[in-house]
Simulated scan of single mutants.
Amino acid sequence: MTEVSFSTHPGSMAGFRPRFLTSRVARVAILGAVLLVSACGLPRSGPTKGQIISGSVEKGGSTHIVHVDDRVNRAANYSPAYGFSSDFRAAGQVGADEVRPGDVLGLSIWENVDDGLLASMGQSSTQLQQLQVDSQGYIFVPYAGRIRAAGNSPDELRRIITQKLESQTPDPQVMVTRVAGDGATVSVMGKVNAQGVFPIERPTRTLSSMLSKAGGVSIEPEVAVVTVKRGNSSGKVWLRDLYSNARNDIALRPGDVILVEEDERSFTALGALGGQTKVPLGNDQINAIEAVAMVGGLSTTLADPKGVFVLRDEPQSVARAVLGRNDIYGNQRVAYVLDLTRPDGMFLARDFVIRDGDTVYVTEAPFVQWQKTLSAILTPVTQLGTADGAFR
């Protein structure tokens, strides 16, 4: 509806100017905005607290909603620790002088005659170099035959060869040396300064000494993880814990594979926080308060301190302890709820340990949606009022 007013000015044509009835237009605009908001919804950083809770097992969903208290903290604060099993720690050091298949030996043989069995004319000694121990552990020595070398030290092998030669040349003198330790080696790879295959020698019998032989790590020690693979078993340890605890400095065995890599454990931060990103955990234990602080804290204009969620898949044993039930099987989806407005809420969040793969999600406060709704409603009205003013 419009009012039409006519005005006549001297020297000009008569005209008319439409004037919108503001109150009626405002009612129409508000109704249209409400319909638009209800039809299209409002933008937000993720689901609301109510929407997450509506997906609980009790309401037909697949997620267990657990409100964190002291009992839950005790049950949920399980964190897989790095370290070596007793099998790794109990393994004795390899004798650096023990001959093994693949080793290369050097023999020096002196004979107490001018024209010996092995020595050349006019020579009293014979040098036999590059004798490789075969896959069955044997070497061949002229006039002594095929001799079992593996499992003996160089000194023990010297006595065996001497006994074999005594019946054929008077008073032989034998010296045995290990030229290379190819039969007792480990592979070192990953974030080290010198990758390669290294022999287990007297100075490199332990994990720390072998890493030093490989030039040390090429990444920050605080995030370096060392994995040792031995047959079908493996173990890993923080580099820092390797040097701080002598029990982690395990003895190496032939065939070990040592891998140094940067720790990749992380959690994801989403929602009404100072930042939304994937955050490395590092080698320290991080609690929920620290996790929130690492991404800038709660957004003061958006966050609902009653709606801090930690989402994770719990293994069966932990899920049973947290839920107090023995009738659940397999991994369970759990949404832990932290209410920071409770008197002990900050303490409970401080004691809640964040694990690898967790998602820390903070919902928006209810009034934020009201603000967005009002903004969506009032903006068209303001625009129409501006347009109305333009016609005046």
Rank of each mutant, 00 (worst) to 15 (best):
E3R: 15
P18R: 11
P18D: 03
T22F: 11
S23R: 10
V28C: 06
I30E: 04
L31F: 12
V34S: 09
L35S: 13
S38Q: 09
L42C: 01
P47C: 06
G50M: 00
S54D: 04
V57P: 00
G60C: 01
V66C: 02
V66N: 02
H67Y: 12
D69N: 14
A75Y: 01
S79Q: 12
F84L: 06
S85Q: 07
S85I: 03
D87A: 15
R89D: 03
V94N: 05
G95D: 13
E98F: 09
E98N: 07
V99T: 09
L105S: 11
G106I: 07
S108G: 09
E111Y: 10
L118I: 11
A119G: 14
M121D: 13
Q123S: 15
S124T: 14
S124H: 12
Q127G: 14
L128T: 13
L131S: 06
L131V: 13
D134G: 08
D134W: 00
Y138W: 10
V141W: 09
V141M: 08
R146F: 10
I147K: 05
G151N: 06
P154T: 15
Q163F: 06
K164R: 15
K164Q: 13
L165I: 05
E166W: 03
S167M: 06
T169G: 06
M175L: 12
V176T: 04
T177K: 06
V179Q: 14
A184S: 15
V186Q: 06
V188H: 02
V188I: 11
G190K: 05
K191W: 05
Q195H: 06
F198D: 00
E201Y: 04
R205E: 04
R205W: 04
S212H: 03
A214D: 04
V217M: 02
S218A: 15
I219C: 03
A224M: 03
V225T: 10
V226T: 07
T227G: 09
N232W: 07
N232M: 11
N232Q: 13
G235I: 05
G235T: 08
K236M: 12
K236C: 11
V237I: 13
V237L: 07
I250W: 11
A251W: 08
V257R: 12
V257S: 13
I258G: 08
L259K: 09
V260R: 04
E262Y: 07
D263C: 14
G274W: 00
V279K: 06
P280W: 07
P280L: 11
L281G: 13
I286P: 01
N287S: 08
A288V: 12
A288K: 05
A291P: 02
M294T: 14
L302S: 08
D304L: 10
P305C: 03
K306S: 04
K306M: 02
L311T: 09
Q316N: 07
R320V: 05
I328T: 00
N331E: 10
N331Y: 08
Q332R: 11
R333G: 04
R333C: 00
Y336Q: 03
V337T: 01
D339H: 07
T341H: 00
M346G: 13
D351R: 07
V353D: 00
I354N: 05
D358L: 05
P366D: 05
F367Q: 10
V368D: 01
S375P: 01
S375D: 07
A376G: 12
A376F: 13
T379R: 02
V381S: 12
Q383W: 12
G385H: 11
G389V: 08
A390M: 08
R392T: 14
